[in-house]
Design a protein around this nucleic acid. Structure first.
Lengths: 204, 204
DNA sequence: CCGGGCGGAATGAACATTCATTCCGTGACG
DNA sequence: CGTCACGGAATGAATGTTCATTCCGCCCGG
């Protein structure tokens, strides 16, 4: 058990459990999924879950936080991609790419995160994490507005509209295999459409 | 007890139960709301629910169908408003007005409807009803595309984007009082933004 | 052999549903 | 008119079921 010990699959179990939980939560709701179902999907016994998480609520929060953090990381990566920020349109493209990557890689997690309005089971720490994404996006909106590239209006509201649109697309294509079964053409069109939702038109 | 007898609140109980259920479902999920909670919110005994609905599932489906049908009716009313259809932009305004009216009057119902992807409890009839809205909206999109007013792309996808955007806005403002606490200005801006999401730009 | 995970049956709490009982409006009878 | 008995609606404690959580015997690596 030294610093570099491998602990091959031991501690990976918590990740596996989180993934299984996420998939089920996305399909049937947190309240609607039973612990035995999580265990079965993970291929372990029910009791083993409790070796890693003290309760269903703890598992739910861990899953939520893991998903949200991964999304934030993916986004941060995409935003840093390709050097210093250029135009608002360019930064939007990075956001889009970040969301797209994440929703492709973790469709379950994405729809789960999207549905968390009626949380009930989320603890304060989870909620705090949830706000970060909105802050990040709202900052972008406000900078874009100051630069004259994004339309006027409450930044939160614009974030809600844009994020909602993306989520609407993801939910639509999820049953038929998720975002990456979409032709690149369709994805590009969707990106353009959502940008137009935010973009301040030059004319008028 | 003649034809015009008032039966003042008697048979209205089923409506009251549906409304209570809808409010709780929106807040805590179908799976997350207990029958006693529904009874309490309606101000009746638990047993009384079962006089009107044979099971929780039946109540859930009745609530879903009622909400969806009301939304469709509201939409139909808004679309018929003001004579024959003019431009696509004009028809979009009617859609927007319909959705806005509905989401203002029944915010609970609206968010409940929006979350039904992971249904589980919806029966085939409810699902069929759910499709009608998408058909209605997709038809509008396709007509708009043929007229050159709406951007190219899969109509279903555009519906998903636009509906998602609207839903995103509703979810955002719901905690702080719902759509009609929004300044008219903000609502108009949101309408313009969503229209730009759909609109085919003249230039380029 | 021994100790630490692990599985999955066992447990108790929470829940949907039932049903014996109460309550209330109505109409008949004095 | 006042009283009373009847029927149907409402109630909520009781019931059986489903679920989260616990517990204990087993198995595997040492």
């Amino acid at each position: 058990m030294n610093i570099h010990s491998v602990t091959p699959k031991r501690t990976d179990l918590d990740r596996l459990l989180i993934d299984s939980a996420l998939a089920l939560f996305a399909e049937r709701t947190y309240e609607g999924t039973q612990m035995p179902a999580v265990a079965q999907r993970a291929g372990v016994g029910v009791g083993s879950i409790y070796r890693y998480f003290p309760s269903k609520e703890a598992l739910g929060n861990a899953a939520f936080r893991h998903a949200k953090r991964t999304l934030l990381d993916t986004l941060a990566g995409a935003l840093a991609d390709g050097g210093p920020t250029g135009t608002a349109r360019e930064e939007f493209a990075r956001f889009w790419r970040g969301f797209t990557r994440y929703a492709s890689a973790h469709p379950d997690a994405f729809v789960f995160l999207e549905h968390q309005q009626h949380d009930t089971f989320l603890d304060p720490e989870s909620r705090a994490l949830a706000d970060e994404l909105h802050r990040l996006a709202a900052d972008f909106i406000e900078r874009g507005q100051q630069a004259g590239a994004i339309r006027d209006g409450d930044a939160e509201q614009l974030v809600g509209l844009a994020l909602g649109a993306f989520a609407g697309l993801v939910k639509l294509v999820r049953p038929s295999g998720g975002l990456d079964t979409l032709p690149a053409e369709d994805l590009d069109r969707a990106e353009a459409a959502v940008w137009d939702l935010l973009h301040r038109k030059a004319d008028r």
